[in-house]
């Protein structure tokens, strides 16, 4: 690609007009804020900006109906994460159709770049994002959030769901539809031996 060279005229031969135009804009906004009620800023802690439903804020781990994490510790999010901020340790679940769950799931929010790749990679819709964006802490350790804090649904209700796969509503308990159907219609509990 050819580089385009732009010569900037630094001689102040343009007169005072640019300054006047700039200050006019400043005063226009000032007067609009004072008298017109059209502030471009918000009174932050009390008042919050509206963000879209696809906003990528602090992560939420979704839960099953019994309150356990939906995550099966497949490490897809940790694999895809460009900031390498997800740390997972996995353990054994008693349910044979689930088998695996995270005993530790930590996200280092100081390293996280909020790209949302973890949400895209998740095969279980177990990790979604909220619209929480005012995260503060007094130590670094506070901002490495663990599994139980990631599963805190109140945050989600407070800030609203952010980036998540399609129209999935993370506030609703999640069922595995296929397994439910199997159990209901055929009376089969997956994983049990079928002798015969």
């Amino acid at each position: 690609m050819a580089t385009r060279v732009v010569t900037v005229d630094r001689n102040l031969r343009t007169g005072p007009m640019p300054i006047v135009r700039g200050m006019a804009l400043t005063f226009k906004n000032m007067l609009a804020t004072w008298f017109g009620g059209k502030a471009s800023t918000v009174q932050f802690p009390e008042e919050k900006r509206k963000t879209s439903g696809r906003y990528r804020g602090v992560h939420i781990l979704t839960q099953r109906m019994d309150g356990t994490p939906k995550c099966v510790a497949c490490y897809m999010c940790a694999t895809v994460c460009p900031a390498e901020c997800i740390y997972i340790e996995s353990g054994e679940r008693p349910e044979k159709d689930i088998e695996k769950y995270p005993t530790r799931f930590e996200i280092d929010l100081l390293r996280c770049v909020y790209c949302g790749f973890c949400v895209d990679a998740c095969p279980e819709e177990a990790i979604v994002m909220s619209r929480e964006n005012d995260l503060v802490g007094t130590t670094r350790a506070e901002l490495i959030i663990d599994r139980d804090r990631l599963m805190d649904r109140n945050k989600l209700i407070e800030h609203g769901p952010g980036y998540r796969p399609e129209e999935h509503d993370v506030r609703r308990p999640v069922r595995i539809a296929a397994l439910e159907r199997l159990r209901k219609e055929h009376g089969i509990v997956p994983g049990m031996p079928q002798r015969g």
């Binding site: 044979k96 088998e99 296929a178 159907r181 199997l182 089969i188 994983g191 049990m192 031996p193």
Partner: peptide
């Protein structure tokens, strides 16, 4: 084959 139509066998 739909996942729920598959023959289930023993796991774990």
């Amino acid at each position: 084959v739909e996942p729920e139509e598959k023959v289930r066998k023993r796991k774990v």
